[in-house]
Amino acid sequence: MAVKPRQPDPATPATPPPEELLRLYRSMLLIRRFEEKAGQLYGMGQINGFCHLYIGQEAVVTGMQAMAGPTDSCITSYRDHGHMLACGLDPKGVMAELTGRSGGYSRGKGGSMHMFSRDHRFYGGHGIVGAQVPLGIGLGFAHQYRGDGGVAHVYLGDGAVNQGQVYESFNMAALWKLPVVFVIENNLYAMGTASARHAAGDELCARGAAYGIPGERIDGMNVLSVRSAAARALAYARAGAGPFILEMMTYRYRGHSMSDPAKYRSKEEVSEMRDNHDPIDRLRQILQSQNVIDEAGLKEIDRTIKASVAAAADFAQTSPEPAASELWTDVLSEA
């Protein structure tokens, strides 16, 4: 299937200051290198089970988090490694969870799809497609209940938008004007089923129209477009106007999970996105054309990030497995 044409953004993205551009670049590159390493460790048998890589989609969570407020919360589905890194979680703890070790964020008991950090207001990491959406408006409900000024960033894929509970959530979020931004990461495939085969209607950003929820379709391969859309949507939700939907047109280069050979799309389609729309390449071009950083500086960033990912991989392979006694802990809280 051909990639849907993207609409131009309604607003021209304001170019952020150089240090912010570099932050965005580092964040995306960290996710890219981390995921590549996770893929390698999977191939080596160090990571098992389901493992969904975020490669290609880095601009989405990076652009959103760039505009996140200090009390904002975040929740997503099982393709969650990038969100955790963008929320500031330690790559070592994330990678060690992927390898099922005691140094992981869930001490090895959650795995790739089930990770959390209350300190970073990252609420998972959920394995049931669509379930994170009502949970996410619950985060919004809590922001409103406490009056803490936070907005819940609720991520879902183009596959999840067909779950009934998403519309139950749209209804309540709009009815009660909950501070929520729904970020639909439309990577064009719900596992192996192309959008045209599973989603009626053209634009997923319009799925909230019946509830009066504004929506915009954004070039999710351009981190600056994502960033400026995030600013608009978060300001709207934070002001008490209710939820907002951002449909991020994006693309994953790898299969749905590590066990997916992705035979439902052509090599040409993937190459076209990788070669001509890659979010990291695009930002690198901006950095270079605006003389924000020279070649040596870029190499230094590359080196630092590779080192941090290597350290994470090393930690993830040397951290001990959880003790046998851990089998029985954390089922219930002590009253």
Binding site: P134, G138, E168
Partner: peptide, 26 residues
Amino acid sequence: PKRVVDTPITEMGFTGLACGAAFTGL
């Protein structure tokens, strides 16, 4: 009405919402 919340007929939705709120300590 802040603490006694009438919901639509939407069990999956409001149960999920309540679980999400409970994760934050409510």
